[in-house]
Simulated assay, not measured.
Amino acid sequence: MTNTTTHTIDVVSYCRVSSQGQGESGLGLEAQREYIARAAQQNGWNIVAEFVDVVSGKLAIEDRPEGKKALSACKKVKAQLVVAKLDRLSRSVHHIARLMEQIEFKVATMSHAKTFELHLFAALAEQERTFIATRTKEALAALQARADGGDVQSVEKIARRTAALEKGRTAPNRAKAGEAIRERVYRWQESVRDPIDLCIHKGGRTLKQVADCLNSKGVTTSRGGEWSSIQVSRVMKSLGLQFPLKQIDL
């Protein structure tokens, strides 16, 4: 008879949302906690503490209020840090590479990934964000139509609504207004990224299934309505989210 012993790893859970609105509503935070809880159950991790930051991903984790506490807790109890997704840890390859030299960490959605693989994923994600930023600046109108999934006013409606104001605006002020619109689109995109990704992760394999999942979780469109398949399709395309490839038996 063989005696098998399972080694339990202590982990410190760390979640991050980008805005106070997300923190209060739970958008993003709920999804992150579920990712981590599932990964812990599947891999035998023992969650000994949880820390949550409401802060931009541009800051290194050691410069975030709760992130600093999370790192300290890991060192104190000799645990590994765990995040739901790599971008919750940082959006900077430099930050992630530096953290790898200080502490061991795991990513719930890539629980078996090695250090080299995590570094590679971070580099690819940073490159993709650069491409997205470039496309955003070059095609604001198209981005709004895709990102909002037809839920917010089209650029034409926004233009009509603000036409009177635009007459008295200088070029710098118009640039600032355009930047404000881009920021609003970006924030809305990020607020629904995790819920959509989680619906896919939980088995949603059609646009309708994802829409039904979002509606059942109380996640609304940018105008506060229910999701349709078309809206899900447009937002997934804008965010670069895809359904898992189907396995083909050879």
Rank of each mutant, 00 (worst) to 15 (best):
G240T: 01
S18Q: 08
G225S: 14
S18G: 14
K75V: 08
L118R: 01
V12I: 09
V232R: 04
T162F: 12
V52L: 03
C15L: 13
H94V: 12
L118V: 03
E50Q: 10
A139G: 12
S56D: 03
K217N: 09
V155I: 15
V235R: 08
Q22P: 03
W45M: 08
L143W: 11
C213V: 03
R187P: 01
A180C: 11
W227N: 00
T134M: 13
Y186R: 15
D194Y: 06
I103H: 04
S216I: 00
L140I: 15
A122C: 10
F116H: 10
A175V: 13
T170P: 02
E190M: 12
R205F: 06
V192N: 08
V155A: 13
L241T: 01
V52M: 01
V83A: 00
Q153F: 08
V155Y: 14
G149V: 01
A122R: 00
L165H: 06
V185C: 05
V155M: 11
R64V: 04
L27R: 10
A139K: 11
E179C: 01
S228E: 04
W227F: 12
G44W: 04
H201I: 05
M100Y: 04
T134V: 08
E117Y: 10
N46P: 03
H94F: 13
C213Q: 04
A79F: 05
I132L: 15
V52T: 11
V93Y: 00
T130R: 14
S154T: 15
C213A: 13
D194V: 00
N173W: 01
T130P: 00
G26Q: 04
H201Y: 15
A175H: 12
A180D: 14
L124D: 13
T109Q: 09
A175D: 13
R16Q: 07
K106S: 07
V219N: 03
G26I: 03
P172T: 11
